[in-house]
């Protein structure tokens, strides 16, 4: 794999992260990060939908009338999401129950529209596929970090398994209710951005 294609995968993880640098997809980062499990399920679904939507739009890119391109993109995303949902409902019923709330969120996820519009419309299918995988991975990393801290401090558990022992609670330790509420997701994302910027100098604007 050449450096150029590798960059398609690695850039969104740090230098061009959809959440912390482009500030896209914040909406779902708030909604699904209360617990780790839905965050991971959401990440996988976005990975699947984004990679394939990118490929499909890239294949169609020379035929799409530019006046209705946004509608075409939406139709492709919506169709993919519904197919994923239907297949999960039939073959993986438990997962589909986890996912049900988030299906609508995937369709409205800004990252999807953003990548289709900015990348897939102007590139060949294979780079588009990598771009989709890379951006979904960049999105997932942030989602999983946020969900980890929110579940640990908000519910005292990880993946639904209690981590903070009962003896702590007996001594008066209390789960932080603020962690469960949406504002805390923003604060954690902000802390991640802070850490990322202090580590990566080139992200800091000069003015």
């Amino acid at each position: 794999m050449s450096t150029k294609t590798l960059k398609l995968l690695s850039d969104p993880l740090n230098l061009n992260n959809p959440i912390t640098v482009q500030v896209l997809g914040i909406c779902s980062a708030l909604a699904v990060t209360v617990k780790l499990e839905p965050a991971v399920v959401m990440s996988l679904s976005v990975l699947f939908v984004l990679a394939f939507a990118n490929v499909i739009i890239s294949l169609l890119r020379n035929t799409i009338p530019s006046r209705i391109r946004i509608i075409v993109q939406l139709v492709v995303i919506a169709a993919l999401v519904i197919i994923v949902d239907q297949v999960l409902k039939a073959y993986s019923y438990e997962v589909s129950k986890q996912l049900s709330v988030f299906v609508g969120l995937i369709i409205t996820n800004c990252i999807l529209m953003g990548r289709l519009e900015a990348f897939a419309l102007g590139n060949k299918p294979w780079p588009s596929f990598l771009d989709g995988v890379g951006n979904a991975a960049g999105y997932s990393i942030i989602l999983i970090i946020v969900a980890f801290f929110r579940e640990l401090f908000g519910s005292g558990s990880i993946w639904g398994i209690q981590i903070i022992p009962d003896s702590f609670y007996d001594f008066g330790y209390v789960n932080n209710g603020l962690m469960i509420l949406p504002p805390m997701a923003l604060i954690i994302v902000a802390i991640i951005i802070w850490v990322q910027r202090s580590k990566t100098r080139e992200l800091i604007e000069t003015n």
């Binding site: 020379n62 799409i64 009338p65 006046r67 209705i68 075409v72 139709v75 492709v76 169709a79």
Partner: peptide
């Protein structure tokens, strides 16, 4: 690809294909 007729046909075909799928 920007003509009215093309746009109409494209939209119709896309919607029918997706609906069928």
């Amino acid at each position: 690809t920007n003509g009215n007729l093309y746009t109409f046909i494209y939209a119709s075909v896309l919607v029918i294909v997706v609906a069928a799928a």
